[in-house]
C-alpha cells in the first residue's frame, strides 16, 4: 500500500481536527479499509485511527433506546448481555460478521460509514430505524444510506454512536456468499412497539441496503410466513454476479424473510 501518516488521537476533537487535513481519512477497525489500501485502491495522506478514542466505545441502554458507540467492536456487541436483552437480532448479526478476528477489530461505526452493499449492520440500522449520531448531527437511517459505499456523512464527520429503538422482537437471517462469507442476501426483521414490521435487506440490492415496503406491509397486517408468499419481490434492482442472479437474490429475500418470521413465531 502507499505510505501515509498515521495519526492516533485519544479524543474526538483531536480526531476531527486531524480529519480536516487534506487527504485525511478515518480508520475504524480497518477490516475493510486495510484490504482496500493493500490493493492501492485508496491513497490517503493521513489515516486517523479512531480506535484509541475511549468515548466512542461502549453500549448503554437509554430508556427505549439502545446506544452503541461508533467505536464498539462487533465482538463487544455479540457478547453484550445488554444487547441480547434489548435487541437479540443485533447479537445474531454481530456474531455472524466475518470471523472472530474481524469481530475483534471491526467496529459498528466503520461498517456503517463504509456501507458495503454486502455488509450486515446497514440492514439492522435501516430495519430498526436507527439514528446515526456524528460529531456534528444526528442522521436518520432512512437518510443515511446513499447507495453503494455512499452515505450522507460529510468530510470530517465521525460516527460517534448509533441509537437503536428497541423493538418488541428482532432477528437477523444471513445467507452467505460462498467465498467472501459476506451477505449474499440477508434480512433484518424487526417488530416495532407500534405494531409495525420493518424489513432491512442487505447483499441483494444493486444500490445497496434497502427496506422492502411490500414485505413490511404484508407482515404488518399478518405476521406469518404465508403472508410473505403473497408478496411479489422483483428481480429488477437486484445485483448480479458470479454468486447470485437478480432472480436468485429476489428469491432469497422471500426465503430469508420467511425464516425470519418463523424464527420469531
Amino acid at each position: 500500500m502507499y505510505n501515509f501518516e498515521f495519526n492516533r488521537p485519544t479524543d474526538l476533537s483531536a480526531a476531527v481536527d486531524a480529519l480536516r487535513g487534506d487527504g485525511a481519512q478515518a480508520l475504524g477497525g480497518g477490516q475493510t479499509l486495510i484490504p482496500v489500501l493493500k490493493q492501492r485502491l485508496a491513497a490517503p495522506t493521513t489515516l486517523v485511527d479512531l480506535t484509541g478514542i475511549e468515548s466512542l466505545k461502549g453500549i448503554r441502554r437509554m430508556g427505549d433506546m439502545l446506544v452503541i458507540g461508533g467505536g464498539t467492536t462487533h465482538g463487544a456487541v455479540a457478547a453484550s448481555g445488554d444487547v441480547a436483552a434489548a435487541i437479540p437480532g443485533l447479537v445474531e448479526l454481530a456474531s455472524k460478521i466475518g470471523d472472530p478476528q474481524v469481530r475483534n477489530r471491526g467496529t459498528i461505526g466503520g461498517s456503517l460509514a463504509n456501507n458495503d452493499p454486502a455488509a450486515c449492520y446497514p440492514a439492522a440500522a435501516l430495519a430498526l430505524g436507527a439514528t446515526i449520531e456524528t460529531n456534528q448531527r444526528k442522521i436518520e437511517a432512512d437518510d443515511f444510506f446513499q447507495g453503494l459505499y455512499a452515505t450522507s456523512l460529510e468530510e470530517g464527520e465521525v460516527i460517534t454512536a448509533v441509537h437503536f429503538p428497541i423493538p418488541t422482537a428482532s432477528t437477523y437471517q444471513k445467507f452467505e456468499q460462498p467465498a467472501s462469507r459476506f451477505s449474499l442476501t440477508s434480512i433484518f426483521l424487526a417488530k416495532m412497539s407500534d405494531g409495525s414490521v420493518r424489513v432491512g435487506v442487505t447483499g441483494a440490492g444493486a444500490d445497496g441496503v434497502f427496506r422492502h415496503e411490500g414485505l413490511e406491509q404484508a407482515l404488518g397486517s399478518n405476521f406469518s410466513a404465508s403472508a410473505v408468499d403473497g408478496v411479489s419481490v422483483a428481480a429488477e434492482g437486484m445485483s448480479n454476479d458470479l454468486h447470485g442472479t437478480p432472480e436468485y437474490r429476489a428469491n432469497l429475500v422471500k426465503v430469508m424473510t420467511k425464516r425470519a418470521v418463523e424464527a420469531l413465531s
Partner: peptide, 23 residues
C-alpha cells in the same frame, strides 16, 4: 461444491481472490 476459477468473456479472472474464489 465451492471452487470455480471463472473467467468473463474478456478473459478477466472474475474469481481472482478469496472474495470470489470459494475456498
Amino acid at each position: 461444491m465451492l471452487e470455480n476459477a471463472a473467467y468473463d468473456e474478456h478473459g478477466q479472472l472474475v474469481a481472482g481472490s478469496y472474495m470470489d474464489y470459494a475456498m
